[in-house]
Amino acid sequence: MRPGLWLAVGLILLFSLFPFYWAIVSSLETGTALFDADLLPSGATLRNYGEIFAAQPFGRNILNSLLVAGGTVALALTLAVGAAYALGRVAFRGRGLLLMVILAVSMFPQVAVLSGLFELIAALGLYNSLWALIFSYMIFTLPFSVWVLTVFMRDLPREIEEAAIIDGAGSFTVVTRIFLPLMAPALASTGLLAFLVAWNEFLFALTFTLSDKVRTVPVAIALISGQSQYEIPWGHMMAASVTVTLPLILLVLLFQRRIVSGLTAGAVKG
């Protein structure tokens, strides 16, 4: 059993981590060395990393991604906390139906809503702006944020809320001073998931932006061009990929314990 288990773990690790390792190796190579199937980089150099920032507005793209992902998280969590309070703590007709509808929203495939969303964004005058992305990313981030937070909020003891009400707290104070601190783990995990989704999203980012100035990282990487149209600049693309992945890994490691406890707290008690 034991050796079998370790073998399985090893295979899974290899399967999931090897592409990333390969990206790191490739990002350190240039020219024809890229096409040698070496496991260790031959003639490692950081030139690719320098070039993506010099030849492209890659710094700007990273900043855009940060703004979009950060804005998405902030907006999604703010809206979701309010919705979760209503759905989790206030009794009203049609609450169950509303929750189902919210869940259903996240089931449409992205392409299905693409053209409709495009019209909407154009009509709102958001086309080719970061707001277009933040706005459209609500489609993915709101449903699960609302769900996770609703379940979490519903399970907070009613008597704590009532004690606060007797102490003179209104709904807003209850949410901000009592519930939010208690929900920190749930907020951290949903926020991080929302961040990841927004950071990695490609299709909407490609469709709703036009100029380099407002492009986010995934699109920028895909559009990195070589000297000629026949050359695909693997080295640059790999360097860019590694650059934008490392912070994510750090972020996940940092919040690791909170994510797990947050997700299970909602799940087990619900």
Binding site: P157, E159, I160, E162, A163, A164, I165, I166, D167, G168, A169, I178, L182
Partner: peptide
């Protein structure tokens, strides 16, 4: 409740954790 000038002690204590 806040305007009734009462205070309540709950069975579960309901302290703010």
């Amino acid at each position: 409740p806040a305007k009734r000038d009462i205070a309540m002690v709950f069975q579960s204590y309901a302290l703010y954790p």
